Simulated scan of single mutants.
Amino acid sequence: MAEALHIPLKFPFTSAGGTRIEQLPIRRLKRKDIAAAQRHSSNEADVEDFLAAKMTGLTLEDLGELDIADSQTVTLVFREMAGGGDGSQVLGRGAAPGAEDAAQRDSES
C-alpha cells in the first residue's frame, strides 16, 4: 500500500478546535464530493473551498486560517488531482507506487 501523502505546512496554525496543525492529509475526492460542494454553493470559489476542505480534512473555518503560501499549495495539489495526478509532483515527490502504471493503463484505453 502506498504511503499517504501529506502537505507539510510552511506556516502551521492552531485550529478552531485547539489542535496544532502542521501538515494536512490528502484524500482523493469522489464525484459525490463534487455534488455536495455544488449543493453547498453555486459560487465557483466556494465550491473549490468546500472541495479543498474535504480533500484535507479541514473545516471551512480552518481552511480560511491557512497562510496564503500554504493555501496556494493546497490549490495546486487539488488541481493536479483533478487532472488525474496524485499530488506528489506538486509536493516534490515521485508518484505513489502504482500511480504511473495506472496512468499508463488509462492512456492506453
Rank of each mutant, 00 (worst) to 15 (best):
N43K: 11
E61A: 13
F78C: 00
I7L: 08
D67L: 07
K32S: 14
A36D: 12
L9I: 09
E48C: 06
M1H: 15
L5T: 04
I26M: 07
V77L: 02
N43L: 09
R27Q: 13
I34Y: 10
G17I: 00
L60N: 09
D49G: 01
G18D: 06
T59C: 07
R79S: 04
G18N: 10
P97K: 08
A95Q: 11
E61N: 11
Q72V: 03
A53C: 09
L63Y: 11
A37Y: 03
N43F: 00
S15A: 14
K54E: 14
L66C: 05
R20A: 12
F78H: 05
N43V: 11
L66V: 04
A102R: 15
D106H: 12
S71L: 13
P8M: 08
T75Y: 03
H40K: 07
I21L: 12
E100A: 14
A82R: 10
R31V: 13
D46A: 11
L63Q: 04
P97F: 07
A36R: 11
S109L: 12
L24G: 03
D67I: 04
K10H: 13
P8Q: 10
L9D: 05
I21P: 06
R79G: 00
A52M: 15
V74M: 05
K30C: 01
G64N: 05
M1E: 14
R105K: 15
E80V: 00
A82L: 11
A103C: 01
L66K: 03
A35N: 08
D67S: 10
L29Q: 04
L76H: 11
V47G: 02
F11R: 14
D62M: 07
H40W: 10
R93K: 15
A52Y: 01
I68P: 06
G92V: 02
T14R: 13
L51C: 08
A45L: 13
S15Y: 07
A45V: 11
S15K: 10
G84A: 07
R31W: 08
H40A: 07
T56P: 03
L5N: 06
H40V: 00
K10L: 13
G83Q: 08
L5Y: 09
G84H: 05
S15R: 10
K10Y: 08
E80W: 03
L76P: 00
A95F: 09
A102S: 12
D33E: 06
L60C: 04
D46W: 02
K32R: 10
S71N: 10
L63N: 04
E108Q: 15
G94I: 01
L91D: 05
F13Y: 13
E44Y: 05
R27W: 00
A95V: 00
E80H: 08
E48K: 11
E22D: 14
A99K: 12
S42I: 04
D49V: 04
G57A: 09
T56Y: 03
R105G: 02
V77C: 02
G94T: 08
L24I: 07
V47R: 13
I34C: 01
G83V: 02
L51F: 03
L66F: 05
P12H: 03
A4L: 13
E22A: 12
L9S: 08
L29D: 03
M55H: 02
D46G: 08
F50E: 02
V90A: 02
